[in-house]
Design a binder for these strands. Structure first.
Lengths: 338, 338
DNA sequence: CTGAAAGCGCTAACAG
DNA sequence: CTGTTAGCGCTTTCAG
């Protein structure tokens, strides 16, 4: 059994309370007593019992993080930013994986909330995202921050990339490289996929390029889907000369398809992805991409949460959009640009 | 305030105990009473308070995971395997990042243990790994499993790849592809780096190839280090015709150096890495590698932990070595092999 | 089958 | 400055 405050108290012939106060640096303890207590605690390697402390104080110093996929480097980066920013405040993270499944997410959310976490960060995998936020969050007083998947409602904390800007930025970059027939391999029917598509379309419109429905194909979220989608595009009578892909894995798949068809990148077809995945730089063709600022998202969510958790009355909800950042590499850099 | 058992009890005019028992499925409750209680609990959306339960039962159903770097896909995969395997038993994960730093690790370990986790998984970043295990683990009764970084002592649970076999497997593969001047870009001075080097050396010895100290260069753990190390090798009078790199990022850097020098892969120089990182397949040259079975490591650690956490007397320590698996891609596949 | 009593280890509020 | 009293919400033990 671990050593308790009571052990130290009995040992030193003082009361439990005195120990408790001394250990937490209250001022109303004589210097002498405090020293004795601290020394004895050190000797005994006393470690406070957080469970008991939490029950009494109603604070756990734990933040829940519920994400669809840890293996996705975007979320790993978010998790990293979150832990780094939270650690100095003494918070730790309970991790839960929703596996991109709405029911699992619901279950994990309930579990995490039952643990009385002080705060919650959620990248929601809800299918019916147009509906609103998970019901268990509606009635909770636990502060939470939604990330990445923008909710339909606006009265909650949200941090993410501005996906519409992302789509526009990527598309306009392809234009700047001289592309005139620009296609989009689109992602799933969730906020990110839809908004990136919208950004793509509005960029085309803005610059007077015509949209062809043939130039928007579904490619999922993985390289296999990108590969197949690109093959569809290549089979068209007039294939595109620039493709904005939903994300980097999809773009990697697309690159494979283009190279296999004997075409060159970026000469025949320029490619740009999104996410700035770890190894984008080392791909067959170094991949141009839009950086979503994953670490920044984690850090920002952490800061919002810290503020909420520290306040007695909840501050007004914040919506922070991290501006996407263009990263140009070989896959889209055409010679006439420096 | 959340609803408590007492609320249900008062509501139904029964005692708190009856509610507690009914909710946990004890048999000594009449079917009728149980039904009423369960229904009311559902209506009120009762969620048990895990903090209070933990204090009473001394079980938290939390497992600590302390790793050096979440961004490393190896650890992300381990974390994934761990959560997946643990979830059905009701365990959740508290994540702590040691940042590859011994002191941070110590601090995080203390914190995690103070949370009364039921079990612990640790990939230790201790510098003096030859010394043994972190002292705070010596005296704890919390079951723990060490992973990836093999400790010097053997009386603890350990799950990892057999790094010596890994080195041998990679080296012998290069031989099978006709390489005769095989170099090793070695990793850090930790169990993994040292053992992979040993595997490399023993393979050379076994097959009667001579070892040259020039053919072993330090390359760290990232692509930058691999790039520089490869340049050193290329500057030799007689450069190698096959290189076993400590890990995939290092190999990716090495590939870059080789291609920049105008040489071909695998024609002039065959390359193999280790780790089977997510995008190895999509690199400039698809990278041959040794898969360490990261997910398997996480799952195995989970299973060992579950057994320990369920037992009243601790089972004898287990040491599980996951056999490394060769994954041949273009970077090492020479024509004379199919 | 049901419930009263005691306690898990700590802290908040107040009294000496 | 120090200590007492009363919980936090739940479970364990044992008596009805």
């Amino acid at each position: 059994m671990a050593v308790r405050m009571k052990d130290i108290a009995d040992d030193l012939g003082v009361s439990l309370m005195t120990v408790s106060k001394a250990l937490r640096g209250h001022i109303d303890i004589s210097d002498d007593t405090r020293q004795r207590i601290l020394r004895r605690a050190r000797e005994l390697k006393y470690q406070p019992n957080w469970i008991a402390r939490s029950l009494a104080t109603r604070r756990t110093f734990i933040v829940g993080l519920v994400i669809p996929d840890l293996m996705h480097s975007f979320f790993a980066e978010v998790a990293n930013g979150l832990t780094k920013e939270l650690a100095p405040f003494g918070y730790q993270i309970v991790l839960a994986n929703s596996d991109e499944n709405a029911e699992t997410e619901q279950r994990e959310l309930d579990l995490v909330l039952a643990r009385n976490v002080d705060g919650l960060v959620l990248a929601s995998a809800q299918h019916d995202w147009r509906r609103g936020i998970p019901r268990c969050l509606k009635n909770t007083s636990t502060p939470f921050v939604l990330i990445d998947r923008m909710p339909a409602v606006t009265n909650v904390n949200y941090v993410g990339t501005c996906d519409e800007d992302l789509g526009t930025l990527a598309t306009e970059h392809l234009m700047s490289q001289g592309c005139t027939r620009i296609a989009h391999i689109r992602g799933p029917d969730n906020p990110n996929g839809v908004r990136r598509l919208q950004g793509f379309q509005s960029a085309l419109k803005k610059h007077g390029l015509k949209t062809s429905s043939q130039y928007v194909v579904e490619g999922g979220t993985k390289d296999g889907g990108g590969y197949r989608a690109m093959q569809e595009l290549l089979a068209l009578n007039v294939p595109p000369d620039g493709v904005f892909c939903y994300n980097d894995p999809v773009a990697a798949g697309a690159i494979k398809a283009v190279l296999e068809s004997g075409r060159s990148i970026p000469g025949d077809i320029a490619i740009i992805g999104a996410g700035n995945v770890h190894y984008s730089d080392l791909l067959r063709v170094p991949l141009s991409t839009i950086d979503q600022g994953a670490a920044q998202i984690g850090e920002t969510a952490a800061r919002i949460l810290v503020e909420c958790m520290g306040a007695k009355t909840p501050p007004p909800p914040k919506c922070v959009l991290i501006p996407p950042r263009l990263v140009v590499r070989d896959s889209s850099r055409r010679d006439h640009e420096v």
